[in-house]
Design a protein around this nucleic acid. Structure first.
Lengths: 137, 137
DNA sequence: CCTGATTTGGTATTTACAATGCGTATTACT
DNA sequence: AGTAATACGCATTGTAAATACCAAATCAGG
C-alpha cells in the first residue's frame, strides 16, 4: 500500500503553510526547505490550487497560501484529491481491465469500502493537528 | 493509493481456491485461467505459503490449496502479508529517510492509524465472502 | 530406482510509470 | 520595461514492479 511522493510532498507543503498561515510560499522556497524537486512540487501546488485548497498568486511577491483556515482542511480530503488518479487495484482504473474475475467478483466492493475507511479515518484530523514549523520554533 | 499486482494476484488466487477447496491448483493452471504471468504468480503462492495461508506440495499431482477454511482467512491479514514491504510514504521505509519534517512530524502517526483502519475494515470480511468459481457455476 | 512433473529460489531482463528536468507562455508586482 | 513568479506541455531519467529464465530440490508413479 503506497501513496505517491506527489501526495507526500503535498502534505508536507500544507503542513508547512499551516505553520505560517499569512506568508506566501513560492515553490522554490518550499523545495529548498524540503530539499526536493522544485518542478515536481510546483505541479503539486497547482493541483492543490485547482482543488481549492490553496490560493496562488503569480508575479513578484507571489506564491501560495492556504485558501481556508487549517482546521477547515481535512487530511482525508487532501489525500483523496492528490491520489485521484491512482487505482487501488487494476479493476479500479478507467481503462482496460484484464481481470477475468470481474463479472462475478465479490471483492471489489469490499476493497472500495476499505479505501473509504482509510480516507474517513484521516478525515478525523485536520491540518490544524499537523502544523509544522522548521527548527522547532 | 495503490496495491501491487502481487497482492492483486494473490487475492484472485485465494478466491479461486476457496471456490474449489479440495483441489490442488498448480501455478500454471491458475496463471492460464487468469491470463497472467505464471512465474510471478508462483512467487505470490510461495509468499502465501510462507505466511501459512496456503499449503503446497511439489512433484506430480502437486499444487497449492488453502491451509485453513475460507471463513478463517481474513482479507486484511492477506493484504497485510502481501504488502508487507510496501511503505505507505517515504518515512515508513526502513532505509534512508530524506524528509526534513521527520523529527517534529505530527502526521506520521495519523497515517499509520489510517492504514490500520484500512486493514481492519478488510478484516470484517473473510475469503468465504469472496468465493469465486469460473463461468458462473 | 528412474522419470517426469512440480515447487522453490536466485538472478537477470523488461517494462511501466513516477519523478524530474526544461523550455515557453502567462500573469502580475515594482 | 523589467523582473519574479505560476502554469503548462513535453522530454528525459530513474526506479521498482513485473516478467522471464535457469538451476536445484522434491515428490508421485511406474
Amino acid at each position: 500500500m503506497r501513496l505517491t511522493s506527489f501526495t507526500d510532498y503535498g502534505l508536507r507543503a500544507l503542513m508547512r503553510m499551516a505553520g505560517t498561515p499569512d506568508r506566501a510560499f513560492t515553490a522554490a522556497d518550499l523545495a529548498a526547505e524540503f530539499r526536493i524537486s522544485r518542478n515536481h512540487l510546483a505541479k503539486v501546488i497547482s493541483a492543490l490550487a485547482a482543488a481549492g485548497l490553496l490560493e496562488t498568486r503569480r508575479g513578484g511577491g507571489g506564491g501560495a497560501m492556504l485558501a481556508r483556515a487549517p482546521e477547515d482542511i481535512r487530511l482525508g480530503d487532501v489525500v483523496a484529491v492528490l491520489e485521484a488518479d491512482q487505482a487501488l487495484v487494476e479493476c479500479f482504473a478507467a481503462g482496460a481491465n484484464t481481470c477475468t474475475l470481474t463479472p462475478h467478483c465479490r471483492l471489489k466492493a469490499r476493497l472500495a469500502h476499505a479505501e473509504a475507511a482509510f480516507i474517513d479515518d484521516l478525515n478525523r484530523s485536520t491540518l490544524a493537528d499537523c502544523v509544522y514549523l522548521p527548527e522547532g520554533a
